[in-house]
Design a binder for these strands. Sequence first.
DNA 1: TAGATTGTTAATCGATTAACAATC
DNA 2: TAGATTGTTAATCGATTAACAATC
Lengths: 214, 214
Amino acid sequence: MLQSVSRQTLQRLPDYLNCLKSLQQSGILTVSAKTVAETLGLGEIQVRKDLASVSTGGKPKIGYVTKDLIKDLEDYLGYHDSHDAVLVGAGKLGRALLSYEGFKEYGLNIVAAFDTKGYETENDDTSSLVLPISSLSDLCRRLQIRIGIITVPADCAQEICDTLVKSGVLAIWNFAPTHLHVPENILVKNENMASSLAVLSQHLSKKMLSEQSE
Amino acid sequence: MLQSVSRQTLQRLPDYLNCLKSLQQSGILTVSAKTVAETLGLGEIQVRKDLASVSTGGKPKIGYVTKDLIKDLEDYLGYHDSHDAVLVGAGKLGRALLSYEGFKEYGLNIVAAFDTKGYETENDDTSSLVLPISSLSDLCRRLQIRIGIITVPADCAQEICDTLVKSGVLAIWNFAPTHLHVPENILVKNENMASSLAVLSQHLSKKMLSEQSE
DNA sequence: TAGATTGTTAATCGATTAACAATC
DNA sequence: TAGATTGTTAATCGATTAACAATC
């Protein structure tokens, strides 16, 4: 049984996986924590500890067999057994996420999209159906959906969230710029654009200041 | 002069602002750290400390004047003086971000979009121009752009990143699922979907396990 | 063998939380 | 005044980093 990891470690795992895949493509069969650390600009010891918590394949002097470590990471991250999800809010962002092929690779399968009225939407390649929100609750229950993606405007996000929770959804990925209230056993992961911008913006302000003083 | 805040604090500030605006709309003129903490599900002391680092308007017994605290937060976050940015990669996600009106509010002004060939794109409301990447460097230099948003596929993200950095961009908002190498004075903020999914997915796995054992 | 690399145990660092004095 | 709420200083907690023994 593998250890449970901290949230920080968990969030770094996809980066390791990414890095390893790219190294694998370059034909590198065996890899050390040091190599991964240097490639990602992280601390060597941190990487070693992180990797040790998801794989037992590390061999002194050799490192990890790239292929095996990739497998271990994918297993740990659950990329091999996919989760069904619904997406609510088929605006620009919602449709962008819907058409993003990469989620499948991460074990996320968006089975249906919803919007206030429901309509047929034209994608470049496929035309997919957007269902009316009135049918959201029923579908979640029938298909036992556990993940809800919220891409509606802030002012109706809480209402959608409540509906999802009532319908058995256990984890919510929130793209609406608002805080959601949920029972404590439900997880909300905010994709907080405003927070990211705050970090970018502050970095610039500091830069400008230091340039002035030069 | 206001204190410099930790990254964690900085990332919470937009949430406070959001919360305060919504309280203001409910007609609440004065607000305590406790109220904000309860609304956002955070610790009271944490909120108090965070607020103290961006505002000096707190009065014992009374709390903060909502309007003033909003002003202080907006000032601190630089929402009043906007930053120009370019966006590279006008795929689904790129176009979704382009059409998102909310960025203006956060002081982010996307002045131009780029894609491999460049073309005219039809939005619902406005048709805007997507320029060819060949003109990216020149435009960044001329307009002294400091923020670059990368929404190209992973395999060309590093190349775009290099171009941006060479053209004077100081902060990069990276939506491509790959790690970017930059000089150490340049900031990269990753919008890491895979990390978010890892958190959601692990929460579900734990839930499933605990349900089984019940 | 020698030394590179692993995994683990201990030390450090930073953020959160608690305690408390100051004050409107 | 009394007590709610502030801001600050000290204690706790968790994550990162350092040190080191184990080993292929």
